[in-house]
Write a protein that binds this DNA or RNA. Sequence first.
DNA 1: CACTTGACCTGTCCGC
DNA 2: TGCGGACAGGTCAAGT
Length: 320
Amino acid sequence: MCQGPDLGRARLARVPELPEVETVRRGLAELVVGRTIDWIDVLEPKCFIGDPAALTGHVFAAARRRGKVLILDLDGGLSLVAHLKMTGQMVFRGGGAGPDAPGVSADPAEAVQRSHNWGAGHPTDSLIGDLPDRSTRVVVHFTDRAALYFNDQRKFGWLALTRSDQVQRVPLIAKMGPEPLEGDPWPEFRRRARRHQGTSIKAALLNQEVVAGIGNIYADEALWHARVHPATRVGDVSDAKLKALLAGAAASMELSLSLGGSTDRNYVDAEGRRGAYLDFAEVFRRDGQPCRRCGREIVKTRVAGRGTHYCPKCQREPRA
DNA sequence: CACTTGACCTGTCCGC
DNA sequence: TGCGGACAGGTCAAGT
């Protein structure tokens, strides 16, 4: 297939953060809930924690999410916890067309398969080819011949089998901060952010113990919305600005979430250009382009060890 | 304890 | 055209 010059960058930017994981969750809730596991094929041992054989015969009962972590509950008090990290994907394939006809799957399966094409770096991008492929790490085979593929080119992601009542004991989940899109996260976010007065606000936003689900993209977006320089010490950020940061992150994620359903459709146009996922971005990967508020050129630097995009006019240096 | 840096990986891009 | 190296980023371990 033809690969435009921007395709590589576009893929890298599609790291699953909260909105992307939520979109995957919704798809899985529709497709795997109610299905019975036949067996689990672990192609990359480091990507599956626990005994895969213990899952045979169990039925998916619900699909939940905590921050960027997926939680798939099964009957019998078991849960499959999953983290996509940077390049993980969950790709469902129905068995409607039969096991020997991988390319002619039924409509529903294909539709959801596309909507699950988050994450990055798949050879064929908007339309995944035959599975398993070389990035497939785990395959959940269902009794009806359907299958759920966990793909992850970089092997950072994982699936872990745990007892449902132990899910909140998973280290990452146990310490996780409030959900930014549920209830009123502000009091808890403020409390937790104030524990890290000495670090940069960007590092604090990326810290899952401060607030759940924010990654590099939405951290940069939130900072732009709130007009805060990413290197500002948390101690120098007012409560009003902290609140604006939380609101900015939420707004950006809500927008992304609302685009999630349509992103797959025109993700890569005929020229292989970037997809709709970037339409909500004000600064991320927009270095060299004008700020949509003031026209100043967006710059890229490094803060908290991460590529960081901001507007030098709207988001002034701390110091003073 | 607070905070920073490196490791984990692989694919892609850039300069030579 | 090919090759080495930088880079991408979520989380954890190890370091200051």
